[in-house]
Structure formats: C-alpha cells, structure tokens
Simulated scan of single mutants.
Amino acid sequence: MTKIDTLASDLRNVSGEDLAPISTETLLAPDGISHPPRILLLYGSLRERSYSRYLTLEAERLLRAFGADTRVYDPSGLPLPDDADISHPKVAELRDLSAWSEAQVWCSPERHGAMTGVMKSQIDWIPLSVGAIRPTQGKALALMQVSGGSQSFNALNQMRVLGRWMRMVTIPNQSSVPKAYTEFDEDGRMKPSPLYDRVVDVMEELMKFTLLVRGRSDYLVDRYSERKSDRLKSMAAAQAAQDAVE
C-alpha cells in the first residue's frame, strides 16, 4: 500500500486513485518563461475626465517601471453582453487581450454603491471557458476603485467575488481612492499621498504574485474532485463501449 493509499484509507471518504502528491519540485520556477509579465488593465468609466482611467494609467506606469509588459483596454464601443457576437471587433480585442495576459488589473468607479455597468460588461465578455480551457484561471488579479465621496469598498468587494468566480488569484492588497477629484491634477496625474503609496504597494504585490503563479496555472487549479469526476466518466464511457460490443 502506497503512502497515498494509506492516507486515503485514514481519511475514509477520499479516493487514493485521485489524490496527487505535492512535490517541492513542482513549485520551482517553470522553464522557458523569460518574457516580461503580461498584464492587462481594465477601467470602468467612459467620461472624458475619468478618474478610474487616470488611476489605471498610474498603475500602468508603475507596472512598466517594475518591468511588466502592459496593455490598457479602451471600453468605448464595447457592446452590452449578448447584444453582439463574439466576432465584434471590441469583443474580440478584449478576449484576445485577456488570453494574452498573465495577470490583470480591474479599476472601477463606485456608482450607486456598486461597480459600474461599463466595468461589469467587460468582465462579462471575458469567457469562463473556451472548449476545455478556462482562460482566466490561475491569472493574478489586482483590484482598485475610485469614489466621488468618502472611502468605500463596495466595488472592490464585488470585483473580488467575480475574480474568485473566474478562478483568478486575487491578491490580498487593494486600492480605494475616496474623493478622487481631489487626488488628481489637471493633467490627470495622481498627486503624492498615502493613497498613491498604496497604489504602488498594490502594483508591487501584483508583480510578485504574477511571477509566482505564471506558468503554474494548470498545476494550481488542478483539483482532486475534477480528477475523480473525469476518471469516473472515463470508466463509465469505457463500460458503455464494452456493453455495446457485447
């Protein structure tokens, strides 16, 4: 009896066939990844003076300083979910950028106590699955929000739920900028402040998490329950095929 079989026996309800040992070798840096971390940034406002866009651009500057390869998606012209085909140019652009990315930044204003429809539409257009592949799983994610009034975390909390639902590795740190109209100058640059320092912290943490998890998403999201389900389905299919022959 192997160590895994013994463990499964001790746990009573666990299938030893579907348990997988965790090897320290698996956690070493993956081979063949030498390009800069690829990070996609999304913002949730179409206003000409958009503070979520300004904050996103500040984040992009920081990520580039940390060595990342970045793309900022412009949501102007993106149709509502299900109001166009995935071949729509803005939809195809967003989905291609999401597939390209190894990490993402989502930045939304808070409107009526929630993330904006512009932000949610972008997230809704990113597919949960393409064939057997889940395009967002295992990607690192950082969250930010801006508010017109006092500091709030409503949009952040909603986006964190969505990140978890999409199997993204949402980093612990986050940025909430209250009274955003006071935090940016006429050129749209964020003024020095503890709020700006927090943005630096968040982008630094995102880079660290991206370097830790990229190239490992298949391993990180490999699940006992899914291995068990796949094995049982294969057994059932094989049995059905055998019964058909007989």
Rank of each mutant, 00 (worst) to 15 (best):
A8R: 06
E183G: 00
K228N: 11
P127R: 02
R12E: 13
L232K: 14
L80F: 13
D222P: 10
S217E: 15
S50R: 03
W100S: 02
T24S: 14
I126P: 09
G32D: 07
P21M: 06
E183N: 05
L232Y: 13
A68D: 03
I33T: 08
L220M: 14
E204Q: 14
N13S: 11
G32L: 10
L55P: 05
R231V: 01
A68R: 00
I4P: 04
P75R: 07
G163L: 09
E183R: 14
S193R: 06
A59H: 00
L195W: 04
L55C: 03
P37Y: 00
K3V: 12
V213I: 13
L11R: 04
E93R: 09
F184R: 01
P79Y: 03
A132D: 15
T170S: 09
Y196I: 00
R198G: 03
D197S: 10
P135G: 05
S217L: 01
G77F: 13
P172H: 07
T6E: 14
G16F: 12
E226K: 14
L80H: 09
A237S: 13
A92V: 11
V91K: 00
R71M: 07
L232W: 09
L19S: 06
K120W: 01
I123V: 15
D74K: 10
V161K: 11
A236T: 11
T26G: 13
W106F: 12
D31T: 13
R223K: 12
L97S: 05
G215W: 06
Q158I: 10
T116S: 15
W106N: 04
H35I: 05
T170K: 04
G188F: 09
L94Q: 07
G32T: 07
V199S: 04
A142T: 06
G148I: 10
D222K: 08
S45H: 03
A20T: 14
G215H: 07
Q104P: 00
H112R: 10
V245W: 05
M207N: 05
I22H: 11
E58D: 12
V199L: 15
S108A: 12
S121N: 15
D83W: 05
P30W: 04
P89W: 08
S129H: 14
D201M: 06
D85F: 05
I126Q: 05
L41M: 07
R227D: 02
M207H: 03
P37G: 08
V200S: 02
P75D: 03
V177D: 01
A140Y: 04
Y181M: 12
R12P: 00
M235T: 07
